[in-house]
Design a protein around this nucleic acid. Structure first.
Lengths: 203, 203, 203, 203
DNA sequence: CGATAAGCGAGACGGTACGTCAAGTCTTATA
DNA sequence: TATAAGACTTGACGTACCGTCTCGCTTATCG
């Protein structure tokens, strides 16, 4: 049996998502009410609940729509530095598209499978792109062996997320990338001789 | 004239903060209600509102109490690696003491001076400790010159925050520290010769 | 368009009015709280406020329900004395059905159109019945001419109300009726001859 | 033992009673708050509670002060009609001096010994004056025998109270007095012959 | 082509929690 | 030592919004 009954008005989906994004950017997540969203979208609460089961689910959908993950492309310049800088900017773009604080508040309300959807739709796309950049750099032998790719990706991603979220300092993509690539120690060989014998040598 | 009027019942403060922390860890920030907190603390809403002007202010106070920032001490082993690993563990401790997601949700509702208090009481203590570790390492000449100390601190702190928040992967303090200290490139000298001429040399 | 929206649960109306009457008779008007009424009725405050705009409006509705004005019938025995005694008992019944003091307290809080409703639903029915008794007695020529019917009705009603309210003395319907019918002077003719020349004669 | 300690500020009593009467006439009994009274009297709540144990006790005191029962004098013209008309006006004066509705609302909140005080200070003075008028008229033989003096007094008082309270009709003292004195029946003798044999004869 | 089924706007529903007002009490400093 | 002053704890307030339900209607597929 096919779907019967009156089909959903397809214009409502977009209107509601747009209204949600508007309200979100104007009053934030905590003060977003479905009644206001419905009012702005020119529809009613039941029509919203028919499409999204809960408030976080709706907001997630609105953010995903704004993020437009499909448009994210991994840079391929052949240069680790350039690619990673571009990769960091992918994160910057991703986080900039969501009003500040919404991500944290939304995440806090997402439980169970909604949390999984949150991760896979809002977080994975950017992480995957940067992961590919690292992977290619490894393939070219540009990176030292033994790196945990997830750690590298999260070091970049978390930094951007952190500063975008708390906004206590600005972001300079190339400085972070260079710091990560070069390392921080003045002389790696010094530490191998000391009593703790940490291995900081390059291989 | 001195202080007049009935003094506040000092036991209420503690009971409310404890109840807040309990509710927070059981139902999360979004479903925390002042009525439930009041019920568990054996008091009433106005008594809470007299002490903390709003829900975020109360939760912030409860988290600060849990964090016990005064107890945080900067490690001083004389070894950068050990100190930084210990420093990362300061972050881990700090974020582990707050239920997952609360920090982001709380921050989203903090505006104005409350946001400043959020930063200075919940974030700065751990950042300051790690900052001191880095500063001492620089003083000993263990780190290369030109590092932006804030970037280093946030690279460590954000990573921990990120993984504590989203919980998508575990944390290995020493791996992150080693990655940051050693750097990621296989051969820093390769990049100076190439067309983009990124300077990855050590000085 | 016709009536839309979810229809009201009709059982709540009755449960709330019953609970109101119960609370009223147990703690009086001043200590009646909507929260207690809601608790006893097994519902909540907003459901009450949706039906009655204010506390006096609710109490008025509960009293009107108790009074059951529709059941009040004018006696028609053909005898003024019997009819008036029965009429006084209509007042007695009306005031006895409301807990003492409630009427005065409620009236004090009724303003504007609520006051009009108070008068027309709680007072007029009994006054109208007694008014009809007086009217019929006049038609039969049982009463002397020139009587102000409203004064007569209020003389009977106020006496009952007064004693029911302040409870300082019991009520004997026939004594009041006889006093009013017979008059109080020993010899009406005496007063016409005196210097003030008050006319107490019978026509 | 004498009274020891700091003496009460005697000016506070009057200031509070005046403020109470003011608030009462402006917002009514239901919306009278002790905080507003204290504010207007230039004092504080505990100073009020030290003098009057409760809100109704305070309001009662304020009304008694307004009523000034000591000034009420029984008229002694020697004419029943004149005296009773003057007596009714004593009632009118008494009820007119209290804002409409306050009496009922206050009475509803008075329980136990406060109720007794309410009766003896607000009600008895006027009733006693009219009672004396009736007593003297009886002594002169102006009234028929067998009258219950309390019924007579309450017939007059309740009528005034009733119309003052509910305000649905104006008051004409002489009409009420004449109605009561003359009685209402057209021919008293008619009723003795009928089957019910009510005794409406004059002795 | 009529019956069936689902979605629609509309809006009120039952109910949780809110943030505030004012009652009456308690404590400290003052006279 | 009892007062005046002020801050206290607490019950109840009236409201906003949640997520659901009912209505009368419209739009589609199915028999």
């Amino acid at each position: 049996m096919e779907r019967t009954g009156r089909p959903r008005d397809p214009t409502i989906d977009g209107a509601v998502l747009d209204a949600t994004a508007d309200v979100l950017s104007q009053v934030g997540y905590a003060r977003l009410t479905l009644e206001e969203v419905a009012r702005r979208a020119g529809t009613t609460k039941p029509s919203i609940y028919r499409r999204w089961r809960s408030r976080p689910e709706l907001v997630l959908a609105a953010l995903v729509r704004r993020l437009d993950a499909g448009s994210i492309r991994a840079p391929e310049s052949g240069c680790v530095v350039c690619d990673l800088v571009a990769g960091v900017e992918v994160f910057v773009t991703a986080f900039r598209r969501t009003p500040p604080g919404v991500l944290g508040a939304l995440f806090a309300e997402c439980g169970g499978e909604l949390r999984e959807e949150f991760m896979s739709t809002l977080f994975e796309p950017a992480r995957r792109v940067v992961g590919e950049v690292v992977e290619r750099a490894e393939g070219r032998g540009d990176l030292r062996e033994g790196l945990d790719r997830d750690v590298v990706v999260d070091l970049l991603g978390s930094f951007v997320h952190y500063r975008a979220l708390f906004g206590h300092a600005s972001m300079d993509a190339s400085e972070v990338v260079v710091t990560l690539l070069r390392g921080m120690v003045a002389d790696p060989t010094r530490f191998a001789r000391r009593k703790h014998r940490h291995d900081l040598s390059l291989s």
